[in-house]
Every structure is written in C-alpha cells, then in structure tokens.
Design a protein around this nucleic acid. Structure first.
Lengths: 177, 177
DNA sequence: CCGCCCATGTAAACGGTTACATGATTTA
DNA sequence: TAAATCATGTAACCGTTTACATGGGCGG
C-alpha cells in the first residue's frame, strides 16, 4: 500500500492541488504507481488529518482549488517508510496464464493478440525513449538525477523484456507442427 | 481478472480438489498468479454454477473432498478468453516509488534494504534454476513444452532484471558525494 | 446565457487479504 | 482419546475501480 507515500513523494518534489496530482499520476509517478482522482482526494484528506500535509486555497482558481504542501512530519514519515522492510512483489501476470492455457487447450488465435500486445509495448518504449532524450540528454552526475534516470531505464527494460517475450512466444506458435 | 481462467487452465492440465488447487497456486501456476484457498473455493463454486466444471466426491478421503474436472463449456470459455483483447498491464512498483522518494528526501538507509531485496531475488532465481534443471534438462521440441519453458524463462528474466536494478541503484547510493 | 470543462467529492461494486470456524481423519 | 492436521467454508476489512453528483468559471 504505497499510495500515501507516493503522494508524499510527489508533494515533496513540488506542492500541488488534487487535480494537479491526478495529472502527475497520468505521467511521471504514474508510470510506476497509478491512482484515480477519487483515491487521491480521499488520501489527501487522510494525509491532512494526520498532519503530514497542509493546504491553502488557491486565489483566482475555479472551484475550491487548494494547493497542498508536505510538512516536516510528512517528510519524516516518508523517510521512515523508505527504510521499512518490504517483501519483493509477487508476479501477477495474466499473459503467462494465457500462454499456459494456450499450451493446454490450444491452438487458438493467441498469436494475433501477442502481436498486438508487442506493438503496444513498442509504443510505450518509444514514449520512454522520447522522455529520456528530452530529460537526460547527458548522463547526469548528481545522485538524485542518476536515480531518476535509473527508474526511467527500469521502465524501458521492462518494455524491452515484454517485447522480446512476445516475439519469442510468436516464434514458437508459428512453428509448423 | 484472471482467477477463474487460471483455475480452468489448471483443471484442464489435471483434475483436482480445492486443496490440491491451492497447492498448485503455491507452486507452478502460483509463480504467475496467486490465490488463497478462500478465493479458490469461492471461485470453484461459481465455475460449477456456470457449468464450466463438475465435481465428484473422492472416496476414502477425509472431509467432503471433491475432485473437480473441466467440462467442454469450460474449455470453450477458456479458448474464448485466450483470444480476448487485453491491455498490457500497468506497472505498479513500490520499489520505484521508494527510489524516487529517496532521491527527494534522502539520503536514508535505503541501501541496506536494497541489498536485502536483491538477496531475496537471488534466492528466487536459484529456485527457478533448480526447476529448470529438473524439468527441462534438454531444450524441448513440442510447442507445449517450449511454451512452458518460455514462461519459466520469463520468470528468471524478471528476477535477473530486479537483481541488476538493485545492484545499479546500490552503486549510485554508495557513490561518495 | 447555455454548454462545456475543471475541481472536488460521494456511492456502490469488486477482487484480494486476513482472521475465524467447522467437521472429519490420521497420529501420538 | 487427545492433539494435530486436512479439507472446506464464512465473515469482515481494505484498496481499487467505475459510475454518478455538484458547483463554479470559461467560451461560444
């Protein structure tokens, strides 16, 4: 359960309103942790009640827009959480289930679907490469920037891995009996 | 939502009772899709109500043990599901959030935790390698076996990827300022 | 001024997790 | 025959997802 800490991280990077945070969860942070605006507003209310963030109304904005900022206790909680012991996540991969199902009740038209999946992974990889070219034209020096670059490269590695997997599975499926 | 189809797949591979299926979800299938016995019994009841599986009491076993087997409509449903259009899964990776948090409120003792995470991934990789040596001493020929091997290799690739990521992050964290 | 969109929020449903419960069968 | 364990099941909780609701500016 990382949503509160993903929000604290995002607010530590830069203060923002609920809707602005929802936008960040469609980009940057959202590449590794997703959240809808409903989750975000609910969680912001909890963070505020806990005294980890505070909000002030934004003048001249429509609606009751409020800008949240992280407070020292929020920073402290974030640092505590970073060092908390966590088990590596279990893999939960529907594609593997499907391959295994194909192996037992196939053949089916899974190849078409695999090709489509690979294509979407290629698109996502291309998007990451654009981000990298824009944000990291040179290998950064500071640990902060190097860590940010590393996280981005992990996203790219994931997409490459899925593409290679789909291609290999396709090769097997297309092998004549 | 793949649980019903993971169960159908497992039953297509071999009939079994609820508790036997729970065992498989701690091994084989469970490396890619987890389920507790509570989920399994609930879902088996649904599959039975849908007419996709049937059960017969197991003589001489304790409790009301019942052996489930997949029925033709269940096979048909599984084949339909395999070809269903699915979006690639979104990544939801707590470790990435932590790295990003470290970059903004660090430095912390994240390095210790990263080393521990890498160690657990090494253990899991070793377990996969043992399975591979036992189940795939030679590269198989049939598409079924090749697909099963591919799925196992995907699991190993995932562990290797995480290990490399942790090691690289550790190198950055340990760089003197 | 009417429709659209922004910003915030509520409500219901669903899947997954954890804790607890029950009976029956081995085992000590 | 008491304790441990197997096989099945119920109940409560939690986070996520989807659908709906409200009010306030902005643009045609």
């Amino acid at each position: 359960m990382s949503l509160p800490h993903a929000l604290l991280t995002s607010l530590a990077e830069r203060p923002g309103s609920g809707s602005e945070l929802a936008g960040r969860f469609d980009r940057s942070i959202g590449y590794f942790w997703q959240a809808t605006h409903q989750q975000i507003y609910r969680e912001l209310a909890r963070l505020e009640a806990a005294g980890w963030v505070e909000a002030e109304p934004v003048e001249g904005a429509r609606g009751g827009k409020r800008r949240f900022r992280i407070l020292p206790p929020g920073r402290e909680e974030l640092r505590r959480w970073i060092n908390e012991r966590q088990d590596p996540p279990a893999i939960r991969d529907e594609l593997m289930v499907r391959i295994r199902a194909e192996a037992v009740v196939g053949p089916t038209d899974l190849a078409d679907e695999l090709a489509a999946v690979a294509e979407r992974h290629r698109d996502k990889l291309a998007a990451y490469l654009e981000i990298e070219a824009r944000d990291f034209p040179n290998e950064p020096v500071s640990p902060e920037r190097r860590l940010q670059h590393l996280v981005l490269k992990a996203g790219m590695a994931f997409e490459r891995h899925r593409i290679a997997f789909c291609d290999e599975a396709l090769a097997i499926l297309k092998t004549p009996l």
